[in-house]
Each structure stands twice: as structure tokens, then as C-alpha cells.
Design a protein around this nucleic acid. Structure first.
Lengths: 161, 161
DNA sequence: CTGTATGGCATGAAAATCCATTGTATCCCG
DNA sequence: CGGGATACAATGGATTTTCATGCCATACAG
């Protein structure tokens, strides 16, 4: 059930004019230890103005989770509809993108818009998945803990921005 | 559930110009008995001005705890946000660093600043995790027991500092 | 052709690896 | 019990490798 390898850490990378961005090596290594894929799956995050990303192996796990959730609320008549909506979002509203030999992906324009990612991409590992943020929105979001914002500020400073 | 091998003891090691520091051998041996990793995970300590460190196996344990917590209160909409914040702190605010054959890690600049670690690193085993302190801050912290400070003073003296 | 996508290559910085030296605790044999 | 030998730990320095990213070459479409 639980995944052995977890995403953790943070990084701030540039998005070039073509919408390409390097997926940090420490995240790629987790992807490749979980399976043999060299692709990431992108989705709009449920709660935040950012993108949620993971490897194909996790997508299967997510499906199982939704199944279990449905079983738990079996008696509730609205559960069925809830399940239908969740699965639609979980699989329909995603895009899978490969990364090349140097670890770069092309952020699909739709996702880029959904996550409002501009010319800088802040990567945050959160265990089973990782997030991709516009650092400006990250700093402005009241739901993001202040300690996390400190990290974002450090990453920006480190880069001289 | 509980980890069998515990971190204990103390040591004072030098941090060189490149930010490298030896992880004491007695702590490394615990890490390697818990799993086969040769890396440590670093995070800012919740309460103290120091770093909290542990092995990847403990990080996985931490993750399972959060998962169970979420499943228990799945129906609550605010639980989702709470979970997101917790995982962000637990994984995003950390850095995983490997140690080489001679047992050294490089302290990432961000962590070095968060823990205010200068050219000396005081390691304190505290069971499931261990802490990394700037010895000066350790001695100045009113929340640290006097008996512990004696140990730090001894380590400093031992080193002629 | 010309503008646009996509893969491969080059570069500079940072980090992992290797080797060498020193210091310290331990062991063994006299 | 003492003293030298030995093994391991910590640390300094140098070298090799990896990473992020800019740049260019090729392909492909309008």
C-alpha cells in the first residue's frame, strides 16, 4: 500500500521561453526508483493554486484510494456522484509528459495556465507527490505555512531574484 | 511500529569551509541498522534553534502516521487542507543528504542557516532522531537542561575551544 | 521558405568521490 | 603494567562527475 520512496525537498528552476523546465534530479531519482518510467503526470492541485505531479505508478495507487473511499461511504447516495467526479478529475484532467535525457519536461500550455506558472517553477516534495508552484503565488497564499515561505524566499535569494 | 534502534550519545565535529561535516560513527551505525540507506534527512527543529535529523526509514514512518490521520477524518473538508500543510512541512521543508565513504555530509546552505550552524556542529542523539546544534546556541538556550550543557562544555573543552 | 517544436550538445557551477594525513582509542605482546 | 602496533574516525585537499540551463541543429508544418 504505502510507497517506499518519498518525494522530499525543494528547488527553484527556470522555465525557458519554450516552456521547458528541469525536473530536479532528486525528484527524478524517486520516480525512477518507484518504477522504470521517465515521465511525470501533471494535474491541477485540489486545494492550492499550483500543480500536483507524480509518477505513473502513483496514479494506480490513487485509483485504489478512490475505490476504498467509495466503499466506505456506500450508504450515502451522493457518494456515487462524488466518486464519478473525483475519478474524472483524477484521470481526465491530467497530462502525462516525458522528460528528456537531461531531465527536462515541457509544461503543457493548459497546465501552465492552470497552475499559473510563469518563468520560475518552485518544486516542493510532499511525500507521495510533489507540487509545482509559481513562487509569487506561493508567497501570497495564506494557506501556506510561514516556514515554507521562508524556504521559498531562500530559494529566490539563492538565485538572486 | 516503533523503531528498534535508537540514536544516543553526543559528539562535537568541525564544519569545514565547504560545509562538510562528519556524522559521528555511532549515529551512522544506527542509521545503517534501521535500513540500508546511507543518507540523512535534515529539517529545522520545531521547538529549538537547531536541526532535527533522521534516516529515511523514519521519514516513511512519519508519512504513514499522517496518512492514517487523514483517513480517519476523510469526510471533514478542513482535514484535506490540514493534511496538505502537514505533508508540506514534513517533506517539503526537509533536505536529504547522502554521506560518503568517510561518513561526511555537506550541510545544505539553507539548513545551515535555519539551524544557524557555524564551524562547529554538536550532535545529540534523542532516540528516534538526533539533533545538530551550534554549540554556542546550545549553551545559550534557556530550555536546555544544565546537565546537557555540561556535556557540551566538556565536548568543547575536549577539543580545546 | 520561415516560424515553430524537439532533441542533442556545450558550459559553468556545484557536489559527489577519491586519496592522503592526522589524531585517537584499542589490542597484543613483551 | 607499559609501549608499540594497529585499526578506525575525523578532516583537509584535489579530482571527477553530475546538474541545470543556454545554445544550436534538425525536423516538420504552414
Amino acid at each position: 500500500m504505502a510507497l517506499e520512496h518519498l518525494f522530499q525537498g525543494s528547488a527553484l528552476n527556470a522555465v525557458d521561453a519554450k516552456g521547458r523546465v528541469s525536473v530536479p534530479a532528486f525528484l527524478r531519482s524517486v520516480i525512477e526508483r518507484r518504477g522504470d518510467a521517465r515521465t511525470i503526470v501533471l494535474a491541477k492541485h485540489d486545494a492550492f493554486t499550483c500543480l500536483s505531479a507524480y509518477d505513473p505508478a502513483y496514479a494506480a495507487l490513487k485509483h485504489q484510494k478512490l475505490e476504498r473511499l467509495l466503499e466506505k461511504q456506500e450508504t450515502d447516495p451522493s457518494a456515487e456522484l462524488d466518486y464519478a467526479r473525483r475519478t474524472m478529475m483524477a484521470f481526465g484532467a491530467t497530462e502525462e509528459v516525458p522528460y528528456d535525457s537531461s531531465g527536462r519536461v515541457i509544461l503543457p500550455p493548459m497546465m501552465r495556465r492552470k497552475g499559473q506558472v510563469d518563468d520560475l517553477a518552485l518544486f516542493i516534495g510532499v511525500g507521495e507527490t510533489f507540487q509545482i508552484w509559481n513562487p509569487k503565488l506561493f508567497l501570497a497564499d495564506p494557506n501556506v505555512p510561514e516556514d515554507m515561505k521562508d524556504i521559498a524566499r531562500f530559494r529566490l535569494e539563492e538565485r538572486g531574484q
